[in-house]
Nucleic acid binder design. Sequence first.
RNA 1: GGCGCCGUAGCCAAGUGGUAAGGCCCGGGACUGCAAAUCCCGUAUCCAUCGGUUCGAGUCCGAUCGGCGCCUCCA
Length: 480
Amino acid sequence: MRRTLSLFNTLTRRVEPVLPVTEGRISLYTCGPTVYNYAHIGNLRTFLFQDLLKRTFQAAGHQVEHCMNITDVEDKIIRDSQGGLAADTSNEDRHTAMKALTERFTAIFLEDLDALGILRADHLPKATDFVPQMIRLIQDLKAKGLAYVRDGSVYYRIAGFPQYGCLAHLDREGMQVGASVDADEYERDSVTDFVLWKATKPGEPRWDSPWGPGRPGWHIECSAMGMELLGERMDIHSGGVDLIFPHHENEMAQSEGCLGHRWVNHWVHGEFLMVEGQKMAKSLGNFFTLRDLMAKGVDPITLRYAIQSNHYRKVLNFSFEGLRAAENALKRIRAFRVRMEGEGQAGGGPWKASLEPTVRLEQAREVFWAAMADDLNTPEALAAVFMLITYLNAQDDHVALTREERDAVLAFLDETDAIFAAWPHQTSGLDGKVEALIEARRAAKAARNWPEADRVRDQLKALGIVLEDRKDGTTGWRRG
RNA sequence: GGCGCCGUAGCCAAGUGGUAAGGCCCGGGACUGCAAAUCCCGUAUCCAUCGGUUCGAGUCCGAUCGGCGCCUCCA
């Protein structure tokens, strides 16, 4: 069964159904990182939102072709990689130095994604691998009268693209900001024209082009790689809200100016994150990378849940109290999963049984999907999961669910975990030492040697194993 | 100056004009040798404030206060 999902479209400012160009196949382009440093949790929020988006489509029965770019040539990359090089350093060595930096941080970025359970994109194109395509695109724009050359740089002529500003909902009059002309750019026809190709300055790595040595502008890579890898019409293009303008506005002008038709059907943007009520900034001491949090003992999956349990289009206030809440909420879901994986207990008497578990389950599934289909309303979707858990725990306390019912519930947990990636089945077997301790505690308990039983239980807890005595006299365990 | 978003319990948070979901925390109870897990009960007469529209508004309109964002660094 394939479900249609709706998303807020920045272009129209409305929640609209996503109707793929090709039935059953969603093409998704997400703006990736600029690899010159560690990603901070604000960046990671955006990548987590994009992963949620992708996984939701997959779980809804769509095949997703996902492209995430790696920006590996850019002002800050050049600044950080070329600083120590002599003025007469060869171009080849400059490229090598740049690559050393970007490859290092690309690897670190991918490790962060793995830790957060973010699925790898089908395409991870590096900008530097697509310079020829960018040059061809610029030539095409020039041939169409949308680009012009000034002193070895090439600029986009906004006057030639009447709908410029429609994505960010800015009108031309509102863009008269001439005071902030970038000092290192040459004279343009209009201050709002943006650069497609930058003529080389001393100390920069360069590529040859029809306009002389230079390097690509910031926006052109996404246009070139998006069209190259996903085709002339893509279903969804996403990024953080800060990319709406100028990045995505300019991408749209480049791609649609070249293609002559609409390029992206759905533009989707994730909101920012604040830390403890303040804007995240190094100067405020509230700037965190994933590694910073992990060093404080935070499980990346807890961070994942804390972020994804809030709606992606609302500013998220990250806090350590929020992380604790997320950790405890996850414990509840995971404990429920372990309970469903096990057999039902002896039972505590009759149950009102107003609804069959399977009916209750189907209701939860429908509420869950209605919420996710409505612009990824994760808070409401998770509420459906929690209500189901409370209801079934109560019933299972009285009349144990059957194996079939438990399996149906587990299938739903798998279905939701395919999206949230936070409560998977744990395959962990116990090692001999743990098994021996569990047996030792059982024996002590049978002998009513409570101090010894408690001592062994604490010992197990220190090893991450939590014991749960059941009504029927047996003892279960789970990882805590 | 232009465009836009947000303000719901101690914290997080959903909410399509019809009478406040859910999570965390907290208090009481049940169960337990004690725990853990779980369940039950209790936690907003009220949705920043003031007006208006309506039979009826957290939801629509206006104003005010407070917080935030964009208008070519930025997830």
